[in-house]
Each structure stands twice: as C-alpha cells, then as structure tokens.
C-alpha cells in the first residue's frame, strides 16, 4: 500500500463511522452542531496520531501478553493530555463536549488502529494511518453535525440563515434526530457507493465508439 492509498482509505473505503461503524457514541452524542463535530473529530485525531506513533515506536519492547494494557495506558495518557489542554485553552469546547472527552479512551477506533495497524508497522505509515482514520472520523462527524445543525437550528457553524424565531425541525438537535440523521446519511452513502461501483463496466466499454469513426 502506498502512502497516498494509506492516507485516503480513512475518508471513504474504510471510513470509521460510515463503513466500519466504530466510535458511534461520540458520533451521535456531540454532533448537535458542525463545530462540536469538528472539535471532537480533531481531538480524536490528535489522540489517534500520537498513540499510533508511540505504539509503533515501542511495539518491539512490549511483551505480547501485556500488549493491550500497555496500549490502553498510552492512549489514556494522551486523552488526559487533551482533556487538560482543552480545559485550559479552549474551555468553551471542553464544556460542549463534556463527558465525551474522557470517553475518547474507549473509542474503539483508537485501540483498534493501535492493535491492527501500529503494532505491525513502522512509525511513518502508522502516523499516516492515524491521520487518515482520524480525519475521516472528523469528516464524518462534521458532516453529521452540519446536517443536524442545518435542519435543527437553521445555521451552519453557528451562522444562522433563517430569520430569528423561525421554526426549525427541532427533533434533529435532540437525541432521536441523531439516530435518524445518521441512518439516512449512511443509507445515502451506501447508495452513492453502489452507484459508483456500477458504471465501471460501462466505462470500460465507453472508449470504443470514439476510434470507430
């Protein structure tokens, strides 16, 4: 796998949220606005990249049987660092994300990548892998947050586009809306992927008519 393939996989082919269905708790929990989704996605990306780097560095020094506990400690340390950093320098985001910041620890994506990728690869590919999966996760959360914010609050990244006091579809910023919006988003992405797969045989034939004349 080339570096660029490694980098792009997290956005579509192996997208954590839309394809692998991992990390669903923060995905549903914090995406009432696009900004929150992006913030959560970037915080997770930071932890993912750092833990992947460290795991790739120490993988040969860790005996197999204590591999998982060691990885968990590494991940938890970076999560605590993010937690303190956000609290000190971006208190607004810290309050918005609340409980879901310490819960980055138990985001299946992170331990999953450490175990299935970083513990078998060297530092550079592991870093790219973390960046790719993390940014793909951030992209998914921002998309879901944007959809929910548009429908539920009539704004994008806090910029309102409806008159004050206008009626919006409030259910989308409430818990049920999270499930429903994500359900339709995944269905839409499935449909897009199915369509992208179909035209391939057609595309292969397409060039023929041109040289015929």
């Amino acid at each position: 796998m080339t570096h660029s393939e490694n980098f792009t996989k997290g956005f579509f082919k192996e997208n954590a949220v839309f394809v692998l269905l991992l990390g669903m708790c923060p995905t549903l929990g914090v995406t009432t606005t696009a900004f929150n989704g992006l913030g959560m996605g970037l915080a997770t990306t930071f932890v993912l990249v750092m833990s992947n780097i460290v795991v790739a560095l120490v993988k040969d020094l860790v005996p197999d049987k204590v591999r998982i506990p060691t990885f968990v400690v590494i991940i938890a340390s970076f999560v605590a660092i993010v937690e303190m950093g956000l609290q000190a320098y971006i208190p607004f985001l810290y309050e918005q994300l609340g409980l879901f910041i310490p819960l980055i620890v138990v985001n299946c994506i992170i331990l999953g990548r450490a175990e299935s990728f970083a513990s078998k690869n060297s530092v550079l590919p592991s870093m790219i892998d973390g960046l790719s999966m993390g940014l793909g996760f951030a992209m998914a959360l921002t998309m879901l947050g944007t959809v929910r914010e548009i429908l539920g609050s009539g704004s994008v990244f806090g910029l309102s586009f409806v008159p004050q006091g206008a009626t919006t579809i409030l259910i989308f910023v409430m818990p049920p809306g999270a499930f429903i919006a994500l359900g339709y988003l995944i269905a839409g992405i499935n449909a897009l992927q199915a369509r992208a797969r179909k035209p391939k045989p057609v595309a292969a034939k397409a060039p023929e008519p041109l040289p015929a004349n």
Partner: peptide, 13 residues
C-alpha cells in the same frame, strides 16, 4: 520481540 516472561511483563507495565 521481547519474550513474555513474568519479569519482562511486570517491568514493561
């Protein structure tokens, strides 16, 4: 890879 002896495991943790 470091073998999984008790000593190694405890030291690592």
């Amino acid at each position: 890879k470091l073998p999984s002896t008790i000593f190694n495991m405890v030291m690592t943790l």
